[in-house]
Design a protein around this nucleic acid. Structure first.
Lengths: 153, 153
DNA sequence: GCTGAAAGACGGACGTC
DNA sequence: GACGTCCGTCTTTCAGC
């Protein structure tokens, strides 16, 4: 991890389709160096993958919410049951594990509030070990998930 | 938006580096059709952009939290002041606007808890119009932000 | 909407330090 | 072990049909 690596990570984050020649120009390293560095960063797990960002509203997913989930007491390793069941619901975009209670936040998206109500009342309430649910409507995302600043050393 | 478009969106989400030939094979459409459809989806805003996903832990960002922010009363249009100031902090990865109180959730990442404390006590507390803060430590992300299912019609 | 040809990018192999 | 150059292959792009 030197300056070339961090420069590559910073560049690739917001523009994964940049060419190796473009990276070479940015980093002032040679093309083949960028080639191998990028491969190394991928193989070493620095780059977890690539994504295209779809505009949810544009495809009809206008209802966006956070659902806080408190679980019933039990062996911690069985939390995985809940996690796996939650991940099978296509409306569940992301699952965060929190430190306290509620134990989880789900980020969910549906076409409309009717779709959300069905999801909430049936699918989410029926997830294994769920004790209680609370939801927060997301009105907007002023700052969409963005590139992270790579710490220097 | 027909089946070819949705197939392209679904494919591209999880693998933006797929070749046009690959898309053609998946969609059973011809290569040049995929080419123009993809361009159209980009230009029409269905595809908001492309990102490389960096593993935050791998680059030393091990502290991950949600910060709930309640704002002081005032004209709603001045919420933008807060949003813009928050977006200038590199540790703030994402900003969500909620429907009630607290009005915002910030997703933040720092190298360690010391870094978070400084961020919380000084930068976040000093954001314009902030009335109160509450934070939730994120222990993990069992289901990382994933591909959304494109609704049919 | 399809096909073909030219330009360009990628990925590997080799030689050098 | 890391870097730099070269070359074959695949991909993209743009023309004409």
């Amino acid at each position: 991890m030197d300056e070339v690596d961090t420069a590559i990570l910073n560049a690739v984050q917001s523009n994964p389709r940049i060419t190796l020649a473009g990276l070479a120009a940015l980093t002032k390293a040679t093309l083949s160096t960028c080639h191998r560095r990028l491969r190394r960063l991928e193989d070493a797990g620095y780059i977890a993958g690539y994504r295209a960002i779809i505009d949810p509203e544009r495809v009809g997913l206008t209802f966006h919410a956070l659902v806080f989930v408190a679980l019933a007491p039990g062996p911690v390793d069985r939390f995985e049951e809940f996690e796996q069941a939650a991940s099978l619901l296509p409306e569940v975009i992301e699952v965060l594990r929190l430190s306290g209670r509620p134990e989880y936040v789900l980020r969910v998206m549906t076409s409309d509030s009717a779709g959300f109500n069905i999801l909430y009342d049936f699918q989410l309430s029926d997830l294994p070990r769920v004790a209680s649910l609370r939801s927060e409507l997301i009105l907007g995302v002023p700052v969409p998930a963005r590139a992270i600043a790579i710490p220097s050393p």
